[in-house]
Design a protein around this nucleic acid. Sequence first.
DNA 1: GACAAGACTGTTATAATGTAACATCCATAA
DNA 2: TTATGGATGTTACATTATAACAGTCTTGTC
Lengths: 139, 139
Amino acid sequence: MSDDRHAHAPIQKLTRNQSLVLGELRGAERPMSAYAILDRLRAEGLKAPLQVYRALDKLVAIGSAHRLESLNAFVACSHGGCSDHSATGFLICETCGSVAEFEDEDLSDDLTRRGEAKGFAVRRANIELIGMCSICNAA
Amino acid sequence: MSDDRHAHAPIQKLTRNQSLVLGELRGAERPMSAYAILDRLRAEGLKAPLQVYRALDKLVAIGSAHRLESLNAFVACSHGGCSDHSATGFLICETCGSVAEFEDEDLSDDLTRRGEAKGFAVRRANIELIGMCSICNAA
DNA sequence: GACAAGACTGTTATAATGTAACATCCATAA
DNA sequence: TTATGGATGTTACATTATAACAGTCTTGTC
């Protein structure tokens, strides 16, 4: 089972809970809170927050999902698995709530260098740009 | 009025609660949660989370404090009032919990341009670099 | 197959963080 | 003076996240 590797397939074989949670995130147009995910998965038998949080922890760890710190919410990785050697950034629209992900090696390097200039060893970065997306801007 | 612009003086006159909260943040060596602040201000008569949260909202709005989204915690601005036209970033040490702030017009411009390239109007940015500070690295 | 090791699960209870709503107070400026 | 907007104090509640513990499934190894 689960030997499908389409464009957006996760690298690792996922457990049932992990698959369910990732499925919800992939189907969502916006970031989802852990509890919103839980509510939609009660039909599948999930009952407790920890079931969702544990799946999310794993998905984030393998790069299949991202946590948006400023929203306390989660999104599926739009690349189907971000390596963490390059910084991932997010464009968060305050108006419609949509989130676009961008990944950029240059930015990553730049930030790492900024850290190093202060003797700081960067392990990972949270980059969240808050503003208005093009669609909302047009309206 | 308000033509005092010392290095660390707040631009605006602060209320009692706001001053108390900012005082705690300034005296702290690490980011503080709202509830940690509240605990230390009970001696001053504060009793409810909202008293702290409201003060924090104001302090963040005027740039005298910053919220660290990935920690759900707050720090005093090390410049004594960041304008929000330039992005502020944070170096967060996972080992000792210290936080260093850096402000950089170039980075700010760079991020704004990245957003614009996708039709996104950046209003503000959260930049949090997580890793290990120079002191912990030496040890 | 047997079995150990490690990851994952299910569950209950609880901690930590953040807000809604409402009445009141106080400074400021017209 | 008085209206206005901000700030306050308070209770109650909503949301987000984890601790602890026992049980189960998978995988690699012998």
